[in-house]
Design a protein around this nucleic acid. Structure first.
Length: 583
DNA sequence: TGCGGCTATTG
DNA sequence: CACAATAGCCGCAG
């Protein structure tokens, strides 16, 4: 380690920075870094070849809470093998405070300074004339005279010297302080602040999962694909031939003389009409009922399954996503646009169940898998503070006591509870729905109020403080029927967002607790799936990690829930491949 | 070339 | 078949 780095740490120690204190960080690979401390009102810059190594040094010595503009920085660090314990992720907190899915430093800056979002400077091409730059003022100052951040600073083009990185870190610490103040203004200050920290840690986890990838055995994966679509095509013409053969297998059952593109829903519909079936659409669940009525239906449904694998989860997918190191990679995002669930690209969240057999732990390791049982109704009981519904959560299967209470069978009770949370108002569950309203009025009123907010376009906040932005209908552009339909859709959306969103918050608290407590056991979370965790661990640690997952759930619930009246349960098992899970 | 509609997969 | 997501292909508008 170079001498200036040690001096830096000593300097930070002298300024009184300790565990958990905010230290803003801006880095540029092979250039250097800037740090700024809001409490000590001090900042430093350092030109170094390997800025991540400096971060590691400070992390080991002081373990501050790193203020990052976004998880891009966490990704840069993780790429260098540096894993920081805690952070304040400005982008994540911006989404929490102001809703929505996409953000950037300019937007977060504008939000906390009450600047008009429409006036945020757009990213302009480089100024060929070398004048003072767009927006006027001094280009060395990232803040324009009009108060907005300069586009070239936001895009990163300009943050390429240690001095500028220091300035960028100073601005990050300003934004973090203003965000903290905004969180304190909310109705539930301690909780929103808590959410900000757990959402920030979730961003660190996402950066790590994006880089680490999911263990997958290429040989097994290719065998599974081959079993569905045949061997890997040797050429484009070979691929076209295979495709034509698959199509022909369906078309030979079709009425003669029809030249049908099976990939075109319209043409499939007319094909079915010629075969004697008049259907409003050709979705699988609808055709399932007709499977035995005509051989073309069965052939078509089989074709659809193979076509899915061929186009989305086939050889091209493996070539693009599965690295030579046997890791399947996608990009993880900490919160989606609706209620704040994690998302993953690259098929990690919607991989067909058949492919799970290829998700195999590496030699010397196993997976510890856990999923939360009935997380949404339990979360509803907690956030609505419905004592009667909370009592039902004592059962391993929450629907059993609910069914007994309503005097219906379990499946009816389940449909009714899900219907209440999703906004279903018609069908078989309607009668049981009225029973729910009588038995659990607190929870059902909570849902009704959320639905009403959505209907009138009033924004909502989840239990953890996330803003759920509700659109509104422009009455001039649509007729009354359409306006009613949109209001009803927003009602269902709002109703569900409070449950799904709070569930996502609890899930992330659980996940980041496992991340923190599991580090010493070399336990790595490799997949998060809304209520399920897959943890890759050394075999000898598997029992310890299995216990840890439950301990962490109880710890997460203690910290997240308003009280201890709602029970949360996890099904935990040690497995070698993902498909071994019973579920 | 971009976008809505349809279809599939997952929780 | 309600809530959420990602993703591919088709058909149509520009």
């Amino acid at each position: 380690m170079e001498e200036p780095d040690k001096q830096l740490v000593e300097e930070l120690c002298r300024s009184g920075i300790g565990r958990g204190d905010l230290v803003a960080l801006a880095i540029w690979p092979r250039t250097g870094l800037g740090m700024a401390t809001p409490t000590a009102a001090a900042s430093v810059s350092l030109g170094v070849e390997d800025p991540s190594a400096v971060v590691r040094l400070v992390e080991d010595a002081l373990r501050p809470r790193w203020v990052l503009w976004s998880n891009d920085t966490a990704a840069t660090l993780a790429q260098s093998g540096v894993r920081i314990a805690t952070s304040w992720d400005i982008a994540a907190v911006d989404r929490l405070l102001f809703g929505g899915w996409r953000t950037d430093p300019a937007r977060a800056w504008a939000h906390v300074h009450d600047l008009a979002l429409e006036e945020i400077p757009r990213n302009a091409p480089a100024d060929l004339f070398g004048d003072s730059g767009r927006g006027g003022g001094d280009r060395e100052d990232p803040v324009r005279p009009d108060g907005h951040l300069r586009a070239e600073w936001v895009s990163g083009d300009w943050r390429t010297t240690p001095d500028r990185l220091r300035r960028w870190a100073e601005l990050a610490s300003v934004v973090a302080s203003l965000q903290q103040a905004r969180l304190d203004e909310l109705a539930s200050p301690p909780r929103a602040s808590f959410t900000a920290r757990s959402e920030s840690a979730a961003e660190l986890l996402c950066a790590e999962m994006s880089i680490d990838g999911l263990p997958m055995d290429r040989g097994v994966a290719e065998e599974i694909v081959a079993g569905i679509v045949g061997p890997r095509p040797r050429s484009d013409s070979d691929a076209a031939e295979q495709r034509a053969r698959r199509d022909a297998e369906v078309l030979r059952h079709a009425p003669p003389g029809s030249d049908v593109d099976l990939r075109s829903p319209g043409q499939v519909k007319s094909l079915l009409r010629r075969a004697g079936f008049d259907v409003p659409d050709t979705r699988a669940w609808r055709l399932e009922a007709l499977r035995d009525a005509h051989p073309v239906i069965d052939a078509l449904l089989t074709w659809r399954k193979a076509e899915r694998v061929a186009t989305t989860y086939g050889y091209a997918w493996l070539d693009e996503r599965l690295g030579a190191d046997g890791r399947l990679r996608g990009t993880w995002a900490g919160s989606d646009g609706a209620a704040g669930r994690m998302t993953a690209s690259g098929g990690l969240h919607n991989m067909p169940a058949e492919m799970r057999g290829a998700v195999v732990a590496e030699p010397g390791r196993v997976f510890v898998r856990a999923d939360l049982g009935q997380i949404e109704p339990r979360v509803l009981a907690a956030v609505s503070r419905d004592a009667a519904f909370a009592r039902a959560s004592v059962a391993d299967d929450m629907y059993a006591p609910v069914a007994a209470q309503l005097g219906v069978d379990r499946s009816t009770a389940k449909v009714a509870v899900l219907g209440a949370m999703y906004g279903q108002t018609t069908g078989h569950g309607a009668q049981a729905l009225r029973g729910l309203a009588a038995a659990y009025p607190v929870a059902m009123t909570y849902l009704e109020e959320a639905a009403r907010s959505g209907q009138v376009g009033r924004d909502l906040r989840t239990y953890g403080g996330r803003l759920v932005v509700m659109g509104s209908t422009n009455a001039n552009e649509v007729d009354e029927r359409e306006a009613r339909r949109q209001a009803a859709a927003r009602g269902r959306y709002g109703r569900n967002a409070l449950v799904q969103g709070a569930a996502a918050e609890l899930f992330k608290v659980w996940a980041v607790t496992v991340r923190a407590r599991g580090a010493d056991l070399d336990a790595r979370i490799v997949l998060c799936l809304h209520d399920e965790l897959l943890v890759h661990v050394p075999i000898e640690q598997s029992d310890a990690v299995a216990r840890l997952l439950d301990d962490c759930l109880q710890e997460a619930v203690r910290r997240w829930a308003p009280d201890d009246s709602v029970r949360f349960v996890a099904d935990i098992g040690v497995i070698e491949r993902w498909s071994d899970a019973k579920r």
